[in-house]
């Protein structure tokens, strides 16, 4: 579903953020990407929908070359849901309009159909009563759940999460993780940058460990947590336990 092939990326001539990354996410898989800060996790996930350009290598999403200038980037992005750390809800629109904007304008869905779907999605993330609210009236956890519903409104086969719980107060992390866990059982392909190792252990099919732009581990969660092969990953896990 998503294939990285020898992906390289530099920030300026000195700093290499992705180094020969080669890996694959299969259809329906849930992959958690972890690693210390500055390891390139966020950059990696942002290259998938071309929010970040790459310098060499290729990324194939659902059979299309994501970084080829021949392929329309907007068409590509319609099929990739993206959830940001800072939610990025549109503050000038109600929750309902935030969710229906893309289906109406990009898929030509009627307002009635889009709103019906939006209400279903809001119900699914437990916020059916917030349809008319504005983003400024929501808590962080509620905002992030709306953002997830907003990404799902386009029925993407793939959804990407960039540290979805890092900007939340601790008591709100659980509600967002619960929604993500529910989502993982639906067969959607999911890739998630997160520090929530509990989530990785319970939900992920595979865990990727990234350090200084190198993909050091690509393993099943129980292997990764019980027996990481790379010393850098061992140290990372040890630090987390403290």
């Amino acid at each position: 579903m998503i294939r990285f092939d020898k992906v390289n990326k530099w920030y300026g001539p000195q700093l290499k953020v992705l180094n020969e990354v080669t890996a694959e996410v299969k259809k329906g898989e849930v992959v958690v990407v972890c690693g210390p800060s500055g390891s390139g996790k966020t950059t990696l996930i942002r290259t998938i929908n071309r929010l970040e350009p790459i310098d060499s290598g290729s990324i194939t999403v659902n059979g299309t070359d994501a970084h080829s200038s021949k392929n329309n980037v907007n068409t590509l992005r319609r099929d990739i849901g993206f959830v940001f750390q800072q939610f990025n809800l549109f503050p000038h629109m109600s929750v309902l309009n935030n969710i229906t904007l893309a289906p109406r304008k990009l898929r030509g869905m009627s307002r009635a159909a889009a709103e019906e779907k939006a209400r279903e999605l809001l119900d699914r993330v437990g916020l059916a009563d917030k349809a008319e609210a504005y983003p400024a009236q929501l808590s962080g956890g509620q905002s992030q759940r709306v953002a997830i519903a907003r990404s799902l409104a386009m029925d993407p086969p793939i959804i990407l999460f960039d540290e979805p719980t890092s900007a939340l107060d601790p008591e709100m992390v659980g509600e967002v993780l619960a929604v993500m866990k529910g989502l993982a059982t639906t067969g959607i392909t999911m890739m998630c940058v997160t520090h929530e190792m509990g989530f990785a252990r319970d939900v992920a099919d595979r865990v990727w460990f990234l350090d200084k732009g190198n993909l050091l581990e690509d393993a099943k969660p129980d292997e990764f947590f019980s027996n990481p092969t790379h010393p850098r990953a061992q140290r990372f896990l040890a630090d987390l336990r403290h």
């Binding site: 992005r77 549109f90 904007l101």
Partner: peptide
């Protein structure tokens, strides 16, 4: 700028992102 980014990540083009968001 993240608002612009969020718009683009849905697949809106430059003009759409500007005019809706």
């Amino acid at each position: 700028v993240t608002q612009y980014e969020a718009g683009r990540s849905f697949g809106f083009n430059y003009l759409q992102t500007m005019s809706y968001i």
